[in-house]
């Protein structure tokens, strides 16, 4: 798979992979840039082009994950991107999933109520995800920011791995997909169901990419920083 470069234009990126649209938005890039290259757009908006390219390329190509390069970027940049991603999930993706699920339930005219149980399951998933995000935003990220800005280590702070939590959240998303695709009675509007699943699949890919950055880049950075400060 080709990598995107500074010379590429937005149209090249979105033509190759339209799932990159929200990723660009997370950097504050909107559409309507005429024929400007990424380099020009980033320069005008004061965006770190190398970081943008690294994120865009890893998102686009699952095989491509240059750990050393990614770890060389400031944790501040990474946290900013991760926060924007959380925001996108909370403000857009989850509400969209929910309203599609409501529509799906309403489209059922039979006496079979399996979808209501699916909704309970979805709510449980959402609750766990939001709790996880809250923990990152209120504890982990501020701690790292403090490490970077003030060189302050708190030896009480013990979060050095999210992988278990990430895989729990991941499992539930996988189960949601399986339950709908394989096990519940298809007593609903197919188009709405497809729409729901497509949104779910896209979200699954996005959040996996997100968790990978946290597990493989941000947390190793945290550990290095602590070691460095503790001498």
């Amino acid at each position: 798979m080709n990598r995107f470069t500074k010379q590429n234009k937005i149209i090249h990126l979105v033509e190759a992979n339209y799932h990159l649209l929200p990723v660009l938005n997370r950097f504050g890039i909107n559409l309507g840039n005429k024929d400007k290259s990424l380099e020009k757009i980033c320069a005008a908006q004061n965006i770190n082009i190398d970081f943008l390219l690294a994120i865009v390329n890893t998102f686009h190509n699952e095989e491509y994950f240059p750990e050393t390069e990614l770890k060389s970027f400031s944790p501040l940049l990474i946290i900013d991107y991760l926060k924007k991603t959380h925001q996108h999930y909370i403000e857009y993706v989850l509400p969209k999933l929910e309203s599609l699920l409501e529509l799906l339930i309403d489209s059922n005219i039979t006496e079979i109520h399996q979808l209501n149980i699916i909704e309970q399951f979805y709510q449980k998933y959402k609750k766990e995800l939001l709790l996880h995000i809250k923990e990152e935003e209120q504890e982990v990220f501020p701690y790292i920011l403090n490490l970077v800005n003030n060189n302050q280590v708190n030896n009480q702070f013990t979060i050095h791995s999210f992988e278990k939590e990430h895989s729990n959240v991941d499992d539930k998303l996988n189960d949601l997909k399986n339950l709908i695709v394989k096990y519940i009675e298809p007593v609903y509007d197919n188009n709405i169901c497809n729409e729901f699943l497509i949104t779910l699949f896209r979200f699954e890919k996005d959040i996996k990419d997100h968790a990978r950055i946290e597990d493989k880049i941000l947390l190793p950075q945290l550990i290095t920083l602590e070691k460095h400060i503790n001498g």
Binding site: Q114, I118, F121, K124, Y125, K172, D175, N178, L179, I184
Partner: peptide
């Protein structure tokens, strides 16, 4: 066999069946 990993997911499977 089921492709369901979480306890909640298995619970949902048991309820709907």
């Amino acid at each position: 066999k089921l492709g369901i990993k979480s306890i909640s997911g298995l619970t949902v499977y048991a309820i709907i069946n």
